[in-house]
């Protein structure tokens, strides 16, 4: 019998938390490769238990390397460990989050394995055992499909928050956990970590927010911004803006949605006074429910909206604030 093809996912973590993209990739891999074996590959220190987080998302297997050297480890060393695992088990494909670490580690591993790597994918699907990788280029102005027809594994980094992470039912939680504790790897030149510091970030970043109220130039006056801030408080939402609003010092790129800002994936997104330029729209393709408020009935934003209000943004936000106050009272 031929071996079942395996899709591997690198289970990046930081501060003892699994990177959310990893869980998104586990769900996506199950959806696009139901007959393949989905394997989460975890490198952790002996006192860590991150396999439990992974198991709830139902990979077929968790392959955990648990060794004390992994308390502090350079990218280059992680690449060497992964190379060993890949060469021993020959997965069909290997997916990474397109995070700072994923984008450092994956190409290093690619070069060791002399295979192909597609960067920053926005979609993935299989044609038999061929992984078709859809990625943007020229700053998201075009999309291309890339394949790696001959070499294995097929490698890709995938943009964070592109897919939804879906926990599985209790009876589908991963039971197959293989733990390796005695890997060795050669000593090579690598950096030493002198210091690590967590830079405080706002409570929930835009990229992670479930609800977002986004403002454009049609809702940029101080009164509208103040009304929007009340609305975010009432909805427990984050405030986002289009690029022109980042000229205002109260907004930074971390508040900006779109191609040169943040990619967001909220359940609920209000777009107030936003025209719907392509560079903005590429940042919201994963929003589940979009409400557009714009005084121009022809505005492009209505093309992606589930609900549309043609009229003044401030008047709408004010009415919504009142209604929410009344509802919560």
């Amino acid at each position: 019998m031929t071996k079942i093809p395996e899709v591997w996912i690198f289970a990046e973590h930081q501060q003892n938390q699994i990177e959310p993209t990893v869980l998104q990739l586990i769900s996506k891999a199950q959806a696009i490769a139901p007959t393949f074996k989905v394997v989460a590959v975890l490198l952790e220190a002996p006192d860590q238990q991150l396999e439990q987080t992974l198991a709830a998302y139902g990979p077929d297997q968790i392959l955990a390397v648990k060794q004390s050297q992994l308390e502090q480890v350079a990218d280059v060393e992680q690449a060497m460990i992964l190379q060993q695992l890949v060469q021993a088990r020959q997965p069909n494909s290997f997916l990474f989050g397109a995070t700072a670490l994923g984008r450092s580690l994956a190409p290093r591993l690619q070069a060791k394995l002399q295979t192909g790597l597609t960067a920053d994918c926005l979609d993935l699907y299989f044609e038999d055992e061929l992984l078709v990788q859809v990625k943007p280029s020229y700053g998201d102005n075009i999309m291309c499909e890339i394949t790696c027809p001959e070499r294995r594994p097929q490698m890709a980094t995938v943009r964070p928050n592109t897919f939804a992470a879906v926990p599985v039912e209790a009876d589908q939680v991963c039971q197959e956990i293989e733990v390796l504790t005695d890997l060795t790897w050669p000593k090579v030149a690598h950096f030493d970590i002198l210091n690590e510091q967590v830079i405080p970030t706002p409570p929930a970043s835009l990229a992670q927010a479930d609800r977002i109220v986004a403002l454009g130039r049609g809702a940029a006056d101080p009164a509208s911004v103040a009304t929007a801030r009340q609305l975010t408080a009432a909805l427990n939402a984050q405030l986002g803006v289009t690029r022109p609003l980042t000229d205002d010092p109260q907004f930074a790129v971390s508040n900006q949605i779109g191609q040169s800002g943040q990619t967001v994936a909220p359940e609920l997104l209000f777009c107030c006074g936003i025209s719907g330029a392509v560079q903005f729209l590429t940042g919201i393709t994963q929003a589940q429910t979009v409400v557009a408020i714009n005084s121009d009935a022809q505005a492009a934003i209505f093309g992606v909206a589930d609900y549309g209000f043609v009229g003044d943004a401030k008047a709408f936000m004010t009415a919504l604030n009142h209604a929410l106050l009344a509802k919560n009272a």
Partner: peptide, 26 residues
């Protein structure tokens, strides 16, 4: 070069039927 760019496409935006709300804000 192991990778092949096999197709180039314009970016897709989702098109959904929009449910338009009453013109009165309340």
């Amino acid at each position: 070069s192991p990778t092949v760019v096999r197709k180039i496409l314009a970016p897709q935006t989702k098109t959904v039927p929009t449910q338009y709300l009453n013109p009165d804000p309340q």
